[in-house]
Amino acid sequence: MAYLETHGVGKRFTLHERGGDQALALSEVSLAIERGTLVAIVGPSGCGKSTLLQIMAGLISASTGEVCLNGRPITAPPFEVVYVFQQYTKSIFPWKTVWQNVAFGLQNRKGLDKTTLAVQCAEYIRLVDLAAFENHFPWQLSGGMQQRVAIARALACQPDVLLMDEPFSSVDAMTRAGLQDLLLRLWQEFSLTVVFVTHDVDEAVYLSQRVIVMSATPGRVVGDIPVPLAYPRDQLVTREAFEYIDLRRQLYQRIFPSERAAQRQVA
């Protein structure tokens, strides 16, 4: 039995408040994610990958099937799991300073005394290189720094699982590379289980040990591809490796088969 499993998870959304039309967002998604692995889920927009992640986090309920963590079905957000949102500008509380934001999860998790809390907060803030910005408000920080606050806040709770929903999609390319390497470093340091949703195939291959490919309407798993690239990975060396380029090509073909076929016909 794997650490995090989904069994035939499906999700219907009602399109109107009064009921009636329903849309099938996910259909029969069964996954088994081993403890300590870094798994990426890729797919075109609208394939339900974020919905799947939210069901895994216990934030929304599945219409069919169930999600199990360590053998127990998830009904509410489990304390071993923290979800990192794509919209960090909203997820980081604008009325709290960096320090207060990082302390937020901790304060609500355990009956920590103030000194332990302060020590732990400082440690995780240092880990994401924001020690000099402890007393800044989010609006005083760049996008990449704000997402680092969100990561520090999540890690401060010492979770087993990080569920990340396109966490780096709204920062610039250079900041993104930095955040990717930060994530890889933290994943190994804390033996985390990471499920990383992205629409960026390059990012999926660069980060993960395994890429799950989804297709749209309804969202289904259409591929599950291991990434046998060695860690530590490097933005230049890894991305130039033949295996990397080959995997990237395979994934693109799998995600956009029809479009590629159409392009070839035109050519």
Binding site: F79, V82, Q87, F93, W95
Partner: peptide, 26 residues
């Protein structure tokens, strides 16, 4: 924003804690 409420939920806050710590300041 629902993201703020869901942030509270993923950190294990109950309804009253979300009301006081997130909804009130927001």
């Amino acid at each position: 924003d629902p993201v703020q409420v869901n942030t509270g939920r993923t950190f294990g806050l109950g309804s009253w804690q979300i009301l006081r710590q997130i909804i009130l300041p927001a």
